[in-house]
């Protein structure tokens, strides 16, 4: 029932919104694609300009995205795409009452990109979760380690090639000293 309807709808929403036009004008090479399916403004940008685009979204008064709502990834293994992963960022601006979604395609053999935790603090844990669940490496992250799973866990559970019923061995209880992983000595 769905396929044909949705394609025409996606085409119908191909008119660039204000923010999309602004990003296209400011970063003509970085913007790979865009759409506004169900009025969710979405801009696909290339990996290397993520940090500068995010800085622009945060600092520029025409964007003023104060809140970084969410970072996640999508594993496109079963979707027949050129790239394996897609990073998805959601932002909210209170000043302009607008939202935007930024997507970044990533290849499997080189799934690393810049951390934006220096722009929004909330990115810190979301990036750790993405690293934990998908094995995506964020360069420049202050403390990139697992967050929901335990340290000895092998693999990345939200990847499509991680079997849902896979079991891993139980871990021994650790001594109290070993568990502390502080960045600095007091």
């Amino acid at each position: 029932m769905s396929g044909s309807i949705s394609n025409s709808e996606i085409k119908a929403t191909r008119d660039a919104g204000e923010l999309t036009s602004l990003l296209k004008q400011k970063f003509p090479r970085a913007v790979l694609n865009f759409h506004a399916h169900r009025s969710d403004e979405t801009v696909v940008i290339e990996r290397d300009s993520l940090h500068s685009v995010c800085l622009f979204l945060h600092e520029d008064s025409r964007c003023a995205f104060e809140i970084m709502l969410d970072i996640t990834a999508v594993d496109l293994l079963e979707m027949n795409m050129n790239h394996r992963f897609e990073m998805v960022y959601h932002f909210k601006s209170l000043t302009h009452a607008s939202r935007i979604r930024i997507k970044v395609p990533l290849n499997e053999d080189d799934c690393r990109l810049a951390s934006i935790s220096d722009i929004w603090k909330s990115a810190d844990w979301y990036e750790r979760e993405c690293f934990d669940m998908f094995g995506i490496v964020f360069e420049g992250h202050p403390n990139l380690k697992r967050i929901l799973m335990y340290e000895e866990f092998e693999g990345h559970p939200l990847r499509k090639d991680y079997p849902i019923d896979k079991q891993q061995p139980l871990m021994e209880l650790k001594e109290i000293e070993e568990r502390h992983t502080y960045g600095r000595e007091l």
Partner: peptide, 11 residues
């Protein structure tokens, strides 16, 4: 259910 192809964020 077969929702149409696409992606959404619903707050």
């Amino acid at each position: 259910h077969h929702p149409p192809e696409g992606e959404i964020y619903m707050p």
